[in-house]
Design a protein around this nucleic acid. Structure first.
Length: 848
RNA sequence: GGGCGGAUAGCUCAGCUGGGAGAGCGCAGCCCUUACAAGGCUGAGGUCACAGGUUCGAUCCCUGUUCCGCCUACCA
């Protein structure tokens, strides 16, 4: 669903810009998802009783390619099903030849500059995936565990010092006990030693400022090879503490853990160690304790910090530049709140571990000379990093070279995407044309993984930003607001939704939900609702097509500019407003606003008002031509406005209707490349005039609705207008009133008197009477008027309070005060009219 | 531990730079009116989480509180 939302938003932008006359490129592709993909294939192998080592590197990779050919197309298929209008001829994959070349070039250059280096230090290790992970690839989760208090006996003494730990099994690798230097309880013990329980190894008691005297016992066991804190303590201690690795890469205890424990799973060992300590009466106590555990982001296995030799990228210098471009506005992050997140991470960025001990990925272009025959070679540590596979060692000529077994973090190649896909390192026309790109649309979960790294690499190698805007969309959650995940079983499959409700409805739902800065709680009901919208559009089109008499239409089209009547001028003006709003909304990535604008216009203005009005025009010879032209034009423009959201149904309808060219608009063979409506002329007069008609119609309808007069019974109405203008407009358009309000005769004029036995509705520009000969329910009508009256009264008293407040009159802006005064006068007048009506009604009632 | 976001109609959510709050669905009433009952018309529903403050005026700005959600972090 996340991908679907992502794709839909991009496609909306792409289609909109393409129709707006831009040369657009949306380059599709996928990364090789190293760890995840390798995991899937390894699982397959396991079910066949095989593993990758039995298969061997080459055969395994072949196997993954086969899997990729079969399943990798799925994402692309989904994208296509969604209607993503990518340039499919340019589809790329991070392991493509060209992209792999870019990866190599980047690696070698960074190595030559000294930014890439190799180091032996503690790293997050996933025992299940059997690889190192970067800090980002580790998820932290709160966990209710146990804090064990263990007595460490002082050497040559019966006294002991107690340490607390959540990981008792690591005590086998302890090489010190640390206390705070100022802790009076332990001051005298610093420099003394203890006999490490179970192993009897002597380790010393040291001091370190990082120890919190208030926590636990104030004494900490130090296991440099299995804890990041302890590693730091060990390294800053003089002389540095020893590192003893007691847990291996497979999550089992090593030889160094001692015979009793070697080969044992780390958790099994934990239980045994606790048991052994208990037997020796060295376990003081255990208490419940909440702490956070690190998990592998791919398989959720608990991470083991391990001492290994890995490749690192020093990103600090790159991060400096990457922060600068955002600070200077060269890259705009939308919504802006994410900038803080971006900066916070960048400022504290740590070196990036880029090597992975898996096979599926870009193999690290480093070779190790086995002979180191020359001094120069020894100086280089026998490491050869090269763009081309070397046949011999460039330093000593030895042919005994072995390539590094590891591959690069997938994100390393993804970071190059904006330029590697356009042909870099060659200087291509594509790079010239499309780099820097315009916008990156993505979820916030990969700001660090991907966005930040693309910015760093883009700046480093292209010397320019990779994109100007970064639009961060929300996460799609389930109806309860939970993250969708396979394990929770709350995943909704986009293809199912498309199948069930249609792709257009599905797309529209995602866009309509995509309010900035808020998660999308996906609701199937909403999709269903938008399917109704598709249906509405379809039916409206059907109505228009039904009324198209080909010959006459052709005549209409040939006629050129037509004189439109009020309703036509009104809808065209509303269209202009809508187009304007949509363009502005899309420009600011307010997808939900754009979606609701077009929805509102098509359904409630075009269908509910205009098409209904047209029904009385369409038969009149006088207006027929211009009505058809206006209908067609508005439909055409509506389809174009809607097209980025609902590409399929709009194209389908668009292909079937005749098109009317207006001004300099371009009409192509597909709606995709027709012109997006923008900067259409507004007609303020039409909008104002139309408001009289709307007032009159809604006034009559309200009475009808509230007094439960069935639509089957025709009404007789009279309207007393307050202005000559209103009278004129209503009289000219009386046919509309009759049609829309289902009224028979309607008397209109400034001198109209309220007919006896009629219900009243008071508007600001007119008074509407509906004659209910003999059937008027006096009580019901009285209730209506009372309600209207009290509503108006309430407003008046509110305004009264405001206008009597001297502070308000004095300090509020003059426009506001004037506005309130006008409002007040208007309301007072209405109040009078309503009171008048009530009085008359009482008289009638009395007579009865 | 630090940071961020949310709390608005029965439900899901809009609400731009402060001037008496809106949509969709649901609900109620009247309707199969010749594009559409997957529809039309009308209506009922909100002390905008709580407490203070700024202001002539606060859903909106500031402070605090409560309840959710997320990100981040080397307290055993």
């Amino acid at each position: 669903m996340g991908h679907a939302l992502n794709a839909v938003l991009q496609d909306v932008l792409i289609r909109w810009k393409r129709m707006s006359g831009y040369k657009v490129l949306w380059l599709p592709g996928t990364d090789h998802a190293g760890i995840a993909t390798q995991n899937v294939v390894e699982k397959q192998l396991a079910s066949e009783g095989l593993d990758r080592y039995k298969l061997g590197r080459e055969a395994f990779i072949e196997r993954v390619w086969k899997w990729k050919a079969e399943y990798g197309g799925k994402i692309i298929h989904q994208l296509k099903s969604l209607g993503a209008s990518c340039d499919w001829s340019r589809e790329r994959f991070t392991l493509d030849e060209g992209l792999s070349m870019a990866v190599r070039e980047v690696f070698v250059r960074l190595y030559e500059e000294g930014l890439i280096y190799r180091d032996d230090r503690l790293i997050n290790w996933c025992p299940r995936c059997s690889t190192a992970l970067s800090d980002l690839e580790v998820e932290h989760e709160e966990f209710e565990g146990n804090l064990a208090y263990i007595k460490y006996t002082l050497s040559n003494s019966s006294d002991h010092i107690t340490v607390a730990t959540t990981r008792p099994e690591t005590m086998l690798g302890d090489t010190a006990v640390a206390v705070h230097p100022d802790d009076s309880r332990y001051k005298d013990l610093i420099g003394k030693s203890v006999d490490l329980p179970l192993t009897k190894r002597k380790i010393s008691i040291i001091s370190d400022n990082a120890v919190d005297p208030a926590f636990g016992t104030g004494a900490v066991k130090v296991t440099p090879a299995h804890d990041f804190n302890d590693e730091a303590i060990a390294k800053r201690h003089s002389p540095p503490l020893k590192f003893i690795t007691v847990i291996g890469k497979d999550g089992r205890m090593t030889e160094d853990a001692g015979n009793r424990y070697a080969g044992m799973d780390r958790y099994k060992c934990r239980r045994l160690v606790l048991n052994d300590l208990k037997e020796q009466k060295l376990l003081e106590k255990g208490e419940k304790y909440k702490y956070s555990l690190s998990h592998c982001y791919r398989c959720k296995t608990v991470i083991e910090p391990l001492l290994t030799l890995q490749w690192y990228l020093n990103v600090k210098p790159l991060a400096q530049e990457a922060m600068r471009v955002v600070r200077e506005g060269k890259i705009k992050i939308v919504p802006k709140v994410w900038e803080n997140t971006y900066f916070a991470w960048m400022e504290n960025i740590k070196d990036w571990c880029i090597s992975r001990q898996i096979w599926w990925g870009h193999r690290i272009p480093a070779w190790y000379c086995q002979d180191k025959k020359s001094e120069k070679c020894r100086m280089q540590n026998g490491i050869v990093v090269s763009r081309e596979d070397p046949v011999e060692c460039p330093y000593c000529g030895s042919q005994n070279l072995i390539q590094d077994e590891d591959v690069l973090d997938t994100w390393f190649s993804s970071a190059l995407w904006p330029f590697s896909t356009l042909g870099w390192p060659d200087k291509t026309v594509d790079l010239e044309t499309f780099y820097p790109t315009t916008v990156l649309v993505t979820g916030f979960d990969i700001i660090f993984f991907w966005v930040a790294r693309m910015i760093m690499m883009g700046l480093k190698f292209m010397e320019d930003v990779p994109f100007r805007d970064v639009y961060i969309h929300a996460l799609v959650r389930d109806i309860k607001g939970q993250k969708m995940s396979k394990s929770k079983g709350n995943v909704v499959d986009p293809l199912t939704m498309m199948d069930r409700y249609g792709t257009d409805a599905f797309r529209f739902t995602l866009a309509a939900f995509a309010a900035q800065g808020r998660d999308v709680k996906f609701s199937e009901e909403r999709v269903e609702g938008y399917r109704h919208f598709v249906n509405k559009l379809w039916n409206a089109s059907r109505f228009i097509m039904m009324n198209l008499q080909i010959v006459e239409t052709q005549r209409a089209l040939a006629q050129g500019p037509t004189v439109f009547n009020l309703s036509a001028r009104w809808i065209l003006s509303r269209l202009a407003v809508t187009a304007d709003n949509i363009n502005r909304a899309l420009d600011e990535y307010r997808f939900n606003d754009a979606a609701s604008d077009i929805y509102q216009f098509i359904w409630h203005e075009f269908c509910d008002w205009y098409i209904e009005m047209v029904k009385s025009d369409i038969k009149s010879p006088e207006y027929q031509m211009s009505v058809i032209e206006c209908l067609l034009y508005t439909l055409d423009a509506s389809l174009r406005l809607l097209h980025p959201f609902m590409p399929f149904v709009t194209e389908e309808i668009w292909q079937k209707i005749p098109h009317i060219r207006r001004e300099k608009e371009k009409i192509g063979e597909s709606i995709m490349i027709s012109e997006y409506p923008d900067s259409l002329p507004r007609d303020y007069q039409a909008e104002e005039d139309m408001s009289y008609i709307i007032d009159a119609v809604t006034g009559i309808r309200t009475i009808r609705g509230e007094l439960n007069v069935p639509p089957s019974s025709e009404l007789y109405a009279a309207i007393k207008t307050y202005s000559r203008k209103a009278e004129e407009i209503l009289k000219e358009n009386v046919l509309y009133l009759r049609k829309l309000a289902n009224a028979g005769e309607i008397k209109i004029g400034m001198d109209v008197e309220k007919p006896e036995g009629s219900a009243t509705c008071v508007k600001s520009s007119m008074e509407i009477y509906v004659l209910l000969k003999g059937v008027l329910n006096i009580e019901a009508e009285m209730d209506r008027l009372k309600k209207a009256s009290s509503e108006v009264e309430e407003s008046i008293s509110f305004l009264n309070k405001k206008l009597n407040n001297e502070d308000f009159l004095l300090r509020a802006p003059k426009e506001v005060v004037d506005k309130e005064k006008v409002k007040y006068e208007e309301l007072t007048m209405r109040k009078e009219r309503i009171t008048e009506s009530m009085k008359k009604l009482k008289e009638v009632g009395g007579e009865k």
